[in-house]
Design a protein around this nucleic acid. Sequence first.
RNA 1: GGACCUGUAGUGCAGCCUGGAGUGCACGUCGGCCUGUCAAGCCGAAGGUCGCGGGUUCAAAUCCCGUCAGGUCCGCCA
Length: 590
Amino acid sequence: MTIAYGLRDRYCGEVDETCVGMNISVCGWVSRIRDHGEHLVFLDLRDHTGQIQCVVDKNINIRSEYVLKISGFVSYRPEENYNDKIPTGRFELKDCEIEILNTAEALPFSLNSKANIDEALRLKYRFLDIRSERMQYNLRLRHNVIQAIRESMSSLDFLEVDTPLLWMPTPEGAREFLVPSRLQKGHFYSLPQSPQIAKQLLMVGGMDRYFQIAKCLRDEDLRADRQFEFTQLDLEASFVGQDQIIEIVSKVISDLFLKILSVSVGPIESISWIQAMLTYGTDKPDLRIPITITDLTALFTSTKVNALRGSSVQAMLLKNVASLGRAKLDEFVAIAKRLGGKGLLWLRVVNDEQGLNFDSPVSKFLEDDDRQAFLKGLDPNEGDLILVVSDEPLLACQILHAVKTYAISEFLIKEEVSKTDYRFLWVTDFPMFESVDENGNAVAAHHPFTMPNEDDLQLMDSNPLKVRSSAYDLVLNGWELGSGSVRIHKREIQEKVFNALGLTDQEAESKFGFMLNAFRYGAPPHAGFGLGIDRLIAIVANESSIREVIAFPKSQSGIDLMTMSPTMVDDRTVKELGLSVLDKDKSETK
RNA sequence: GGACCUGUAGUGCAGCCUGGAGUGCACGUCGGCCUGUCAAGCCGAAGGUCGCGGGUUCAAAUCCCGUCAGGUCCGCCA
């Protein structure tokens, strides 16, 4: 018996020519039984490495998913009975002795079935679901990815430091989970939405380079790519700027893809936020999709068509879909209106006696200049479909992006988007503030510790919405994989940003006083990044939801279907925490 | 807070639009047969609160309303 193998001599999937002729023991679960009568029973034993066929020639009372230790002689199968579908298909265990380590009831769903098992059922019995090949693969992949990241970070002189889970609420940003304090009644810790402030304080503490495979917690609504708790590669480095962080993260990513997938990522393109918005209509474009937005404003300055006389003219060409029915086109228009646009104009490219022409609700208003403008601006072919939104540029482009996303999900070019094509993109120069609220205060686009672009500092008071920040996102195939920024390390600039956000000095002091205080004592210039590991693994695993790469995820309404948490607790427990539950009847019926 | 999709035997589905006896398929389960299978095969059997509640109707899995659960998305996610 060895440390590695315990009760067994080999793992099931490891049986190979090196052990032919040996009497070995394997342990695992019964995957399938093929019973030919008492003289011949085939039994597939499965563990985390694979499966091996065991031949039994006596009466047994074994059922699926029993836990067995099987001892037998490893033999080659008769050559005509090789099974090429599995790695151990040339071997089998003969003259087997079976020890039943545990019995099992029939499972609520089959682990062998190729059918899609209802996800709620899988989550209720997650401990069984994890036995499936899919989950075994995904969780092993997750381990390998995290392991590779730790090695990379370590080799780049980053040091892993734990930061507290029970900490200080940071009221800006995502809604946080609160934890009542028993010892300090009426006081609360919060679970961090990210270790942001802690890692900046580590920089003040002279750690130079920090990273953490960090749990982040956000009490916001769940999605396919969002869970309450998720895992982030959190990193921060001193005396570096945007370029170094981008270089570091790019290296970690490309080393990872080479190691895990043998894929060479190559240099990662970079695009400014405004350019991304105007070209793709989103700040997280999927570069695998070759549909971009063209600004035709300059070509329609003197048009008489009202639908083309908005403050800009943004157009998108969809190849070979002019046959699309009116119902779909009406849905496009509906999407545009739902997003706050005035509408959307479509033009089918046809070929008539005048050459290329347009079939559209505005056909009869189109003058020759308008036709030429579309031909010149978009170079369409017969059978293409042109979609145009004439509105404020950002809104128009966002509408076209939404329509494009819908079109792709419904009918467009799906087969052309390769799942094994990994198109990374850095998006830089995000706006510092995304809007101004009803009180005239700016609303931060990133977090309030983000350094404004130095060239825009003088706009902070006069025109804050024009201020760019030193923030950058890493995008992969339309997923936001992570984001980071250069941080403010000077107290004066930090105060200026808090002011723009509408925080009074007193508020800033009470919420972030410890941080402002730290900045009095020599904070180094620093910058960092947070990379969503669940999303990264989901993409690498070719899964469309991060739930598939998390051992025990929650449903969209935030319930763990296995434990059925969250649960009620008894009054005494609540009272001990210095709390009382309001509207209890209502919460009990839920 | 909102929109849409889904819920039928242990599992995966069909049936629903156009109301007429829980009508059907595959897998699994249970029993029997079977000495080279590998999604073994053959024979047989059991297995149903059609998510739940209400309404319309002579009659509801089917139509209507509500509700619960799951999913996708919008809002939200500094």
